[in-house]
């Protein structure tokens, strides 16, 4: 049974790595089109390693913005990754030294989602989900960024293959098991509505980050323990 769960976890990790990694081709092409060279493009994927932040960085540069604005926008979009580290504490701690440094580097939407999609009582599966997805996406994202940077605009749009919908569906599937209780479903619905309401009026990054306010409101009172997602 434990083996079965681990296999399922790795299958999820692999699918997410492939679907997310494929987007590296868009990033690589877009970055070169914005005026960065191949080395700079690869350095962004290796060092920043957070899709939203990287697209924002080259977006600002491509639109003629300054380097300072690019750094600020990308850092702002990466703030949610800080919350993920807190949410992952019961899964990953204790950690020190290089292990913690690497865990930080691969703490992204995907690794967090796959880790927390595993059963709460199965700590090995949650850890495997985090590391397999984090490292899997890291390898795929960086390799395919290089490909995109070299091929530039000669390749098609990943949206033609439905990969944007696949990424959203993967996140939906990963959140799904955590919506067992009404309170969690209410949090998911309120967060989605708030993000959509803010999308036309707030700068990029704010809509998703604002969902943290919903979590604070939901966790502030005294929900019964079984209502809190593990």
């Amino acid at each position: 049974m434990a083996r079965l769960t681990l296999d399922r976890t790795r299958q999820q990790a692999l699918s997410v790595s492939v679907a997310t990694g494929a987007y590296g081709i868009s990033f690589g092409a877009l970055s070169v089109a914005a005026g960065l060279d191949v080395w700079q493009t690869c350095a962004l994927s290796l060092l920043v390693f957070s899709g939203g932040s990287q697209f924002a960085f080259v977006g600002v540069i491509g639109a003629g913005g300054g380097a300072g604005a690019a750094v600020a926008t990308s850092a702002f979009l990466g703030l949610r990754n800080g919350f993920y580290g807190v949410g992952l504490a019961p899964v990953l701690r204790p950690m020190r030294g290089w292990r913690k440094a690497w865990a930080a580097q691969v703490t992204i939407d995907e690794s967090t989602a796959v880790a927390l999609a595993q059963p709460a009582e199965d700590l090995p599966a949650r850890r495997a989900g985090f590391w397999w997805t984090g490292v899997g996406v890291f390898v795929a994202w960086n390799a395919i960024t290089l490909l995109g940077a070299l091929l530039g605009s000669r390749i098609g749009d990943p949206a033609d293959w439905g990969l944007d919908a696949a990424a959203a569906a993967a996140f939906l599937a990963l959140v799904w098991p955590r919506l067992a209780h009404r309170r969690a479903r209410a949090v998911a619905a309120a967060s989605s509505l708030l993000a959509l309401a803010l999308t036309p009026v707030a700068p990029p990054g704010v809509p998703v980050l604002a969902a943290a306010l919903v979590a604070i409101a939901a966790g502030w009172g005294h929900p019964r323990p079984e209502e809190v997602p593990e």
Partner: peptide
């Protein structure tokens, strides 16, 4: 409790934005 809800909230918001947002519309 807040940390437990935060991941559900952020990932749900991410799904909504990835499904309906195109730039700022």
């Amino acid at each position: 409790r807040i940390a437990a809800f935060v991941t559900v909230a952020l990932l749900s918001a991410l799904v909504a934005v990835q499904t309906f947002a195109s730039g700022r519309s």
